[in-house]
Design a protein around this nucleic acid. Structure first.
Length: 247
DNA sequence: CCCAACCTAAACACTC
DNA sequence: AGAGTGTTTAGGTTGG
């Protein structure tokens, strides 16, 4: 029937427009964005909740599935290194680079420290002074759409099978490690219901797992980014208020 | 109060 | 057959 696994917009590397120049409603912060920081693929996983095996794995497994060049924002953009990353979120929100400073996210997810994952507890010094107050196992403030979005953006190929999306979420938001299974249903529900995500039929010849790969629909990426940015800034200001007792 | 967005649960079909 | 995946429907909560 439909099999509307959206035939992927043939992504040429020119589609990089996504990265910076989409008509992202520029918040005051976003101005001239894009240009500045970006992150080098290498410096990608520098966070305490560093990349999950899932993503790394899928980097392998999802080999050249097609030429849907993972040509989004991150690609081709290079390096300014996270060294400057702390330049504040301001410049780079159009790109997800700010997102990858997961120190920020972590401040929302102190759990990661409370129940450190075996492979990723390395909390680089300097990253977060580690204010470990915070409620145990609180639910992440992000909607499932945002979580999925982050997972997909965080993957090298910009696409993942549901299974890896689960794993990414669990790795980065330990809340879901102990949460009951219903959230997976919600993830799938979101994937198939939301127009923001599209399904890529797996190349059968190389197919290793079940199901399809999922990616962010380019046209909805700005929207997702905006939502994520709002959530992020809202909660980070809040957590600032919370985490900083009184200077 | 209304509406939109989101969450959750459940049922069902399909594929491996 | 069973598990995983994808789709759909329905009801509830919450914030603007």
């Amino acid at each position: 029937m439909e099999t509307s696994s959206h035939t992927l917009p043939s992504f040429s590397s020119s589609s990089t427009t996504l990265g910076g120049s989409l008509p992202l409603t520029p918040s005051p912060q976003l101005t001239s964005s894009s240009v500045s920081l970006t992150l080098s693929p290498v410096s990608f996983p520098p966070s305490p909740t560093s990349l999950s095996p899932a993503t790394a794995e899928s980097a392998h497994s999802s080999s050249p599935v097609s030429d849907f060049a993972a040509s989004h924002c991150l690609e081709g953009q290079s390096t300014q290194s996270l060294g400057q990353v702390n330049t504040s979120d301001q410049d780079d929100l159009t790109c997800l680079s700010w997102l990858h400073q997961r120190g920020d996210l972590l401040s929302l997810q102190p759990l990661a420290k409370i129940t450190p994952l075996p492979q990723q507890q390395t909390c680089t010094p300097g990253q977060l002074p580690s204010p470990p107050p915070a409620p145990v196992s609180s639910k992440p403030p992000y909607s499932f759409s945002s979580l999925i979005f982050m997972a997909l953006e965080d993957s090298p190929q910009k696409r993942l099978p549901v299974k890896d999306i689960y794993e990414w979420i669990v790795s980065n938001f330990p809340y879901y490690r102990t949460a009951t299974g219903g959230w997976r249903n919600s993830v799938r529900h979101n994937l198939s219901l939301s127009k923001s995500f599209c399904r890529i039929q797996r190349d059968k010849s190389q197919s290793v797992g079940k199901g399809s790969l999922w990616c962010v629909c380019p046209e909805y990426r700005p929207v997702l980014l905006e939502v994520l940015r709002k959530t992020h800034s809202y909660h980070s200001t809040n957590s600032n208020l919370i985490n900083k007792p009184a200077l």
